[in-house]
């Protein structure tokens, strides 16, 4: 056994320990990223090996919380992938319009930028008032930021550009108030959004959604966990409900590939099919 094998064994034990002690289940995440993040944390903390880290993890909750932040990669943007939002406007909004009341779930919403982008889009399309948005993440620190709706002013330029490219119909500045170092999203965008804690690896369905967005989350999971989560989405969607994934994610290799139809293939927008067809 070489040191890589030993390290893999230690990693497996550590993920097991995290699961038993704290309930977070990283055992079915794609290994390379988890390992890299843990390794960098280990170097930063000047620890000799994963076993030493495991000990600290078990006895020091604040250390675990730090590691949790390392493992949940929260990088996000407003109107990330403008062409995706363009496609939403063009192909998904008309479907949503058919419903008197709309339910949307953002799974893995991180600090909320994606959710507020959706809120803006719905407002411009005149659908916001009849929509309830559920935005969930496993990371409570990120969720807290999302609820506050406060963003770093340094990113404003990029967000404004994204918004314009995504087919935005007003001035982006209508949706926030700028302060010294940050911007605060407009209160009216928040009123139909419910942020809550939900772990895709361990928690259950969210009922009767018309639209689910889960972007740039599945890339961190292995195939088994991806299948579990897509199954969860299938069961949470109403008939004909729509599922949107990140631009580098797809259902092509999923167990559920035949349970969904393409709406806009290049943008990873799918429609749930009737269960008899699976």
């Amino acid at each position: 056994m070489d040191d890589i094998d030993n390290q893999n064994l230690e990693l497996q034990l550590m993920l097991e320990a995290i699961h038993l002690k704290y309930g977070y289940d990283f055992r079915n995440y794609a290994k390379a990223s988890v390992k890299r993040r843990i390794q960098h944390r280990m170097t930063k903390e000047k620890m000799a090996n994963f076993s030493e880290m495991q000990h600290k993890l078990l006895y020091d909750v604040s250390f675990f919380e730090r590691l949790l932040l390392d493992l949940s990669i929260n990088v996000t943007e407003m109107f990330r992938d403008p062409t995706f939002y363009m496609a939403l406007r063009k192909f998904v909004i008309p479907e949503l319009r058919k419903h008197p009341f709309i339910k949307i779930w953002h799974a893995g919403c991180s600090t909320g930028e994606e959710v507020y982008s959706m809120a803006i889009l719905l407002k411009e399309e005149g659908l916001y008032d009849q929509t309830q948005i559920y935005a969930t993440d496993m990371n409570e620190v990120a969720l807290k930021k999302a609820k506050d709706g406060i963003f770093d002013i340094g990113k404003l330029k990029q967000y404004t550009k994204n918004y314009q490219k995504s087919g935005g119909q007003s001035a982006f500045s209508d949706y926030y108030s700028a302060h010294y170092e940050h911007v605060v999203v407009d209160k009216s965008l928040k009123k139909n959004i419910l942020f809550s804690d939900h772990n895709l690896a361990t928690d259950g369905v969210f009922g009767e959604m018309n639209l689910i967005l889960c972007r740039n989350v599945l890339i961190y999971f292995n195939r088994d966990l991806q299948n579990r989560v897509v199954g969860l989405f299938y069961d949470s969607l109403c008939p004909d409900g729509i599922l949107c994934l990140g631009s580098k994610e797809s259902l092509s290799f999923s167990k559920y590939t035949n349970a969904f139809d393409d709406v806009v293939k290049e943008e990873k927008i799918y429609r749930r099919l009737d269960s008899e067809l699976i």
């Binding site: 390379a32 990223s33 990669i73």
Partner: peptide, 11 residues
């Protein structure tokens, strides 16, 4: 990945 597949990350 050690099983010689690719992963992507947006970190």
């Amino acid at each position: 990945e050690e099983d010689r597949t690719f992963s992507l990350s947006v970190e």
